[in-house]
């Protein structure tokens, strides 16, 4: 029982130290999300100022956080694989798959 308590205490300490250690990293995270939606950024840069969102951006928002947190960013080398996987899992139409892929890899 004693070891039990110790392990639980260790878990709590670990949780809190992780939490405080990673606070500064939250600003990093915001950037990384903006980075990963490079498509959105580019379309904003091209059309000023209230550019309509691309189809892919809308579909990304409407779908990619339905079942899990939208990914924080990933290598463009696997974006096609991810989309094919999610097409099967989420029954995306081929058009949705293409639009979102274009948004991720403009």
């Amino acid at each position: 029982m004693n070891t039990d308590l110790k392990i639980r205490a260790a878990c709590i300490v670990l949780t809190f130290s992780l939490a405080s250690a990673s606070l500064p990293a939250f600003s990093w995270r915001i950037e990384s999300i903006q980075d990963s939606s490079a498509g959105a950024r580019q379309s904003q840069a091209r059309h000023q100022p209230a550019a309509p969102e691309s189809k892919g951006a809308i579909k990304f928002k409407q779908n990619c956080s339905r079942c899990h947190e939208a990914p924080q960013g990933f290598s463009s080398r696997i974006s096609g694989t991810i989309l094919r996987h999610m097409r099967v899992r989420a029954s995306l139409s081929p058009q949705d798959e293409r639009d979102i892929l274009r948004f991720l890899n403009p």
Binding site: I7, R8, G80, T81, I82, N105
Partner: peptide, 27 residues
Amino acid sequence: PGTTQDVPLISGGVGFVTSTNAGNTTY
């Protein structure tokens, strides 16, 4: 891969779970 976007991927999760039920903890 047909294109450079179609590289096979490895994904998943690694974790540590504890569950305490009626005073007994499972790790």
